[in-house]
């Protein structure tokens, strides 16, 4: 464990807590993409298949349970909570995410560390996480008003992967055997997607204008 990875995990945790806070405090999920939340639930479930077989540390196990639990709770809330579900932008959240699922799965069948069920699903979850934010970015662009909690959610989500890139650089420099190419390349693609969002988010913040993401 290094400071970059700890900072990344904490930032990731904050992004989930911000989202839970927004939904519980405002009893609304306007501006939040259910599709991105469902993709994240799939990411965590397929990535943590080793939850009960490999014990890394108490921290690792607790964080896995928190991420799986919170992502499923958010999806449940947005789908079934009688008050929250009414504020879901159903007609705006129309990203065809089956494409993301299909491409990630095919890529995982081709590119993985070992051809075992657990490793293929692990690679699938890494590729899927890189693109899981797309429905949310499209929804932000369409809904125009960057509800500040939704914007902050995306901000922390992007910052967490940026910290992980520093972590991979640190591990590459300090460990003789670096085998995290799948995570590293996928993480770079993911952060590049956020960098784009951050640029337009910063511009809109500076001009105090509405967020205008390019079509």
């Amino acid at each position: 464990m290094n400071i970059f990875r700890l900072a990344g995990d904490m930032t990731h945790l904050i992004s989930v807590l911000v989202l839970l806070l927004k939904i519980y405090a405002t009893k609304s999920c306007s501006g939040i993409s259910l599709k991105t939340q469902e993709l994240y639930a799939i990411v965590f479930v397929t990535r943590y298949l080793d939850l009960f077989t490999d014990f890394i540390s108490l921290y690792n196990t607790v964080m896995k349970l928190v991420f799986i639990g919170s992502s499923l709770a958010i999806v449940w809330c947005m789908r079934y909570h009688r008050v929250v579900r009414r504020s879901y932008d159903r007609e705006l959240d129309t990203f065809r995410y089956w494409i993301l699922l299909g491409v990630s799965f095919i890529l995982a069948l081709v590119l993985h560390e070992k051809f075992t069920l657990q490793e293929v699903f692990w690679a699938f979850s890494i590729y899927l996480e890189a693109v899981a934010i797309l429905p949310q970015l499209v929804l932000l662009q369409r809904s125009g008003n960057v509800d500040n909690l939704a914007g902050q959610y995306v901000f922390f989500l992007g910052a967490y992967r940026a910290f992980y890139i520093l972590n991979w650089i640190y591990r590459y420099l300090t460990e003789q055997r670096f085998t995290r190419w799948i995570s590293c390349v996928s993480g770079l693609v993911q952060t590049a997607l956020y960098a784009d969002f951050f640029y337009y988010y910063f511009i809109s913040w500076k001009n105090n204008a509405k967020l205008q993401l390019p079509a």
Binding site: M63, F67, T179
Partner: peptide
């Protein structure tokens, strides 16, 4: 070794 194969990152 075992620990190198398992994914210790979240």
């Amino acid at each position: 070794s075992k620990d190198e194969d398992t994914h210790d990152e979240l």
